[in-house]
Amino acid sequence: MASQGTKRSYEQMETDGERQNATEIRASVGKMIDGIGRFYIQMCTELKLSDYEGRLIQNSLTIERMVLSAFDERRNKYLEEHPSAGKDPKKTGGPIYKRVDRKWMRELVLYDKEEIRRIWRQANNGDDATAGLTHMMIWHSNLNDTTYQRTRALVRTGMDPRMCSLMQGSTLPRRSGAAGAAVKGVGTMVMELIRMIKRGINDRNFWRGENGRKTRSAYERMCNILKGKFQTAAQRAMMDQVRESRNPGNAEIEDLIFLARSALILRGSVAHKSCLPACVYGPAVASGYDFEKEGYSLVGIDPFKLLQNSQVYSLIRPNENPAHKSQLVWMACNSAAFEDLRVLSFIRGTKVSPRGKLSTRGVQIASNENMDAMESSTLELRSRYWAIRTRSGGNTNQQRASAGQISVQPAFSVQRNLPFDKPTIMAAFTGNTEGRTSDMRAEIIRMMEGAKPEEMSFQGRGVFELSDERAANPIVPSFDMSNEGSYFFGDNAEEYDN
């Protein structure tokens, strides 16, 4: 993207840094990872977990959730003011799984939030270390993106479920800051804005008074975040219109849905970061690795190297396929839920299948599930090659597409044709070009129609051997075009429920 120079890199967003050079960025990201790792080690000690239990991804998720809940100030305040039966607002906890007599047992633990905050700050040299908290939120978000298709949420806001490739980060909490905003897809931002506008339509006082002023500035800020994701002048001009509207209503909703559809071809720039579970960072720190000293990046080879040398386990339900569970977590670790499966298959070195073909449910185990038949197995999170994460949407291309997802959002900077089903997408653009945004709409449609099938995206960008740390010898991959490109292809993934 041309304006790259004016933006802070995501590592800076990730670490609240002012302008830093590459070495400083690597050190501050490393410091953040160190903090998460030290916190995780301490929690495993508190909970008396064995090494194996500490490497269980379900335990990692519970521990991450506990610290996120302990620092969720708004919710904590709300819980104190609106006490609900049987919930102690000062405590947080969740299921911890232990191996007892050759069987997995679930144990519900409860801790004072104050105590968890103390352990977290102690692991982070006394700081609140917001960057580390956001990092864990993005890992949870990436896992949700890989596990669930947001059909219901899309339909509720009037969008087409086939636009799911635009929904990265749709389950990120509001408090995820600049680093969170960077990884949100165009569809996620559109959905947040539509929800806001709908509230304004239904509630006369939404934009009024002292609160209304705050609401208005939040609305304009979200519009600017979305505008910054678009790469064409016409899309940005249309966002200006939406932002400046005196009284946002149905016309703005129409414009936003139009823009979301246009992003299936004229893709937005959305950041991709490899955020790993805390149970990967903990053992690495415990083994003596100093992330701050060595430096770390979320968008280069580092996460690949770390996963190459990590042992992570997962509980497996009786009829689940461990290899499929591994694929789910591998995609989440690489922030690749909406990437082209052919690119992923090449990088991973084994075939990556669409969601609907995987015999696996989510990673988390519900409290009512029976533990008797639970097994555990090693997650295979290694890769054959590594590639640089991208934040450009890439230019655009036609490809055989599917009944489910009709476009992709690249996660890796790797040369390819970008699949999208042009006739299906263009069919949504018939007729409606009147109104105050008509010239911009016409211009956007013209650009979409001009998108050429034979153009290559990320020209000359390749993948790298894991021994090639400096990215000196790019390998331009070859793809098996007979395979499906979309992950949520004609899909039956479970729906995400809060």
Rank of each mutant, 00 (worst) to 15 (best):
N144W: 05
D51P: 11
F291S: 14
E469I: 09
G394A: 05
D302W: 10
E294A: 13
Q415N: 01
I197K: 06
P89V: 13
D290K: 08
L341W: 10
K31G: 13
M105A: 12
P410C: 14
M456N: 12
Q235H: 08
R65V: 07
T45C: 14
G249M: 08
S141L: 03
V100T: 12
A129R: 13
R65E: 10
A123V: 12
N417W: 14
L276R: 05
I444T: 14
Q327P: 08
R342M: 13
I475W: 01
A387R: 01
P303S: 11
A271I: 04
D128Q: 04
A237P: 01
G212Y: 06
N76T: 05
E434Q: 14
G86Y: 03
L226G: 12
I225R: 02
G490C: 02
K305L: 06
M222G: 15
E294W: 02
Q149C: 06
G158Y: 12
A373I: 06
T437E: 03
E484W: 03
G54V: 05
Q409G: 03
Y487R: 02
T433F: 13
E107A: 12
G17P: 15
N211E: 13
M137P: 09
I36H: 02
P453H: 15
L172I: 15
N21Q: 03
L418K: 01
G356Q: 09
G485N: 02
Q409T: 15
N142V: 04
L133E: 04
N142P: 10
E443H: 04
N483H: 12
K103T: 11
Q12T: 08
L266K: 14
A181I: 00
K184L: 07
G356S: 07
G450K: 08
L172C: 12
E465D: 07
M440E: 05
N397V: 06
N142D: 11
S392V: 04
A260K: 03
N211A: 14
S335G: 10
R391C: 02
I116G: 06
K113Y: 02
R400K: 15
T62F: 03
E107Y: 02
M137D: 06
K77T: 10
G30D: 01
A278G: 15
I119H: 10
S287E: 10
T350G: 15
S287W: 12
C279T: 11
E495L: 04
P453V: 05
N247I: 08
A337Q: 08
T430A: 14
Y289Q: 05
N142M: 11
M191Q: 12
A131I: 04
P161M: 02
D439R: 07
N250S: 12
R400A: 07
N202Q: 12
D112A: 12
N334H: 15
S310A: 15
R8D: 00
G158T: 10
I445L: 07
V67H: 10
N21R: 13
G404E: 07
A286H: 08
A22M: 00
P283L: 13
T146Q: 05
S467E: 08
L276K: 14
P318V: 13
F464E: 06
N334V: 03
M1V: 09
D101L: 13
T45L: 13
A387C: 08
E443C: 03
F458A: 00
T62W: 03
V100H: 14
D439Q: 06
N76F: 00
S274F: 10
L379V: 15
V363Q: 03
C44Q: 02
S407K: 07
A2Y: 00
G460D: 00
M426Y: 00
M239D: 06
M159K: 07
R156S: 09
Q398I: 06
E18W: 04
G393F: 02
D160N: 11
S353K: 13
K351T: 05
P303L: 08
R389K: 14
T15R: 00
D497V: 15
F458M: 07
L68R: 06
E292P: 14
Q20F: 00
L328P: 05
R106C: 06
Q241L: 06
I425M: 06
A70K: 02
I33D: 04
L264S: 06
G282L: 07
L256H: 07
L193W: 05
D34C: 12
Q405G: 03
T146S: 15
G282Y: 11
A129T: 14
R221Y: 05
N498H: 09
Q42A: 09
N492C: 09
S170Y: 02
F304R: 00
N224T: 12
W386M: 06
S402W: 00
N202M: 08
M481R: 15
E14R: 15
N205R: 00
D160P: 03
V109W: 03
S377P: 02
K422G: 14
R221Q: 04
N417H: 15
M447L: 14
A336L: 15
S345P: 05
F420D: 00
R416M: 07
R8Q: 14
A286S: 11
K103P: 00
T23R: 11
P354D: 06
S287A: 08
F338D: 03
N370V: 10
Q327N: 12
W386G: 08
T6I: 07
P95Q: 06
C44I: 14
V190H: 02
A284T: 05
S217I: 13
E254S: 05
Q12Y: 02
S9R: 00
A366T: 09
W120R: 07
S383F: 01
L418Q: 04
G462H: 10
Y10E: 07
A337M: 09
N124F: 10
D439T: 02
D255E: 12
C279W: 10
M222A: 13
P173I: 02
K103L: 11
L56N: 15
L226F: 10
A373T: 12
D240R: 01
M456G: 15
V190S: 14
F420Y: 15
R106T: 05
R213P: 03
Y289P: 02
S28K: 15
F258I: 05
A337G: 13
P453C: 13
S482G: 00
V299T: 09
I347K: 06
L172R: 03
L379F: 10
H135I: 05
F346K: 05
T130M: 13
W386I: 10
Y496P: 00
T430P: 15
I57N: 12
I265M: 15
R382M: 04
I316R: 04
R208N: 06
G212V: 03
A131G: 04
Q311V: 09
E81G: 13
D160V: 09
M13S: 01
E114P: 01
A427P: 06
N21E: 13
A387G: 15
E24V: 14
M105K: 10
A427H: 14
T350Q: 10
P423T: 13
G37N: 08
F488P: 03
V285T: 08
W139T: 08
A182P: 02
A472R: 08
S84Y: 01
N319P: 01
R361C: 00
Q235P: 12
W104E: 01
E244H: 00
T360G: 05
Q459P: 07
Q405N: 09
R348Q: 08
M137S: 05
N250P: 08
F39K: 05
G93F: 07
P173T: 11
K7N: 13
R261N: 08
M167D: 01
A22D: 04
Y313F: 13
S413G: 07
R261H: 07
S50H: 11
R38W: 12
F258G: 07
K452I: 12
V352W: 05
Q168S: 15
T350A: 15
H140P: 03
D127E: 13
G30N: 15
V67M: 14
P423R: 15
S314C: 15
V155C: 04
S438T: 03
L49V: 13
T390R: 02
P322R: 05
I444Q: 13
I36D: 14
T157W: 02
E46K: 06
A323N: 15
K91N: 05
Y385A: 11
Y111L: 09
A233T: 15
E292M: 10
V190R: 00
C279F: 11
F39N: 12
S438R: 00
D145F: 07
I41L: 14
A493H: 12
K325F: 07
G300N: 07
S377L: 12
S50G: 15
L172D: 01
S413N: 11
K48T: 13
Q364I: 12
T350C: 12
R102F: 14
E495F: 01
A251E: 09
C223L: 12
M167N: 07
